[in-house]
């Protein structure tokens, strides 16, 4: 029977994997999937701690979080479509709008 520490470990691994993916991958779709993975890791923790404390709130929160994640994915995919139309690809390394207009970049 796995104990709370196992869930915790798994969650940390999943979260770290997702974070690494978000940070290093440049494909927008992969980044979105990695974000989903981080959300999954936190949902896992919510359920695990809820179970341990004997409260239903953890599971309810996880459902809530999934719903929000679904909405987030819908928005995220729309952004990816726009990105594709704008740049002709899904490489987020191409998008540097925070650094100002293209011609002024250092």
């Amino acid at each position: 029977m796995p104990g709370p520490s196992h869930y915790l470990l798994l969650s940390v691994l999943l979260f770290g994997l997702g974070l690494t993916g978000v940070l290093v991958r440049r494909n927008a779709l992969v980044v979105l999937m990695c974000i989903e993975m981080m959300l999954g890791a936190s949902n896992l923790l919510l359920v695990a701690f809820g179970q341990q404390a004997g409260l239903p709130g953890g599971q309810a929160f996880a459902f809530f979080s999934m719903t929000v994640a679904a909405a987030e994915v819908a928005v995220g995919l729309a952004v990816v479509v726009l990105l594709y139309r704008w740049s002709g690809g899904t490489d987020i390394g191409e998008v540097r709008l925070f650094a100002g207009p293209r011609e002024e970049r250092p």
């Binding site: 290093v24 440049r26 987020i92 390394g93 540097r96 709008l97 925070f98 650094a99 100002g100 250092p106």
Partner: peptide
């Protein structure tokens, strides 16, 4: 120079 504009 810190402000690269790269999301990552």
């Amino acid at each position: 120079h810190l402000q690269t504009g790269r999301l990552a």
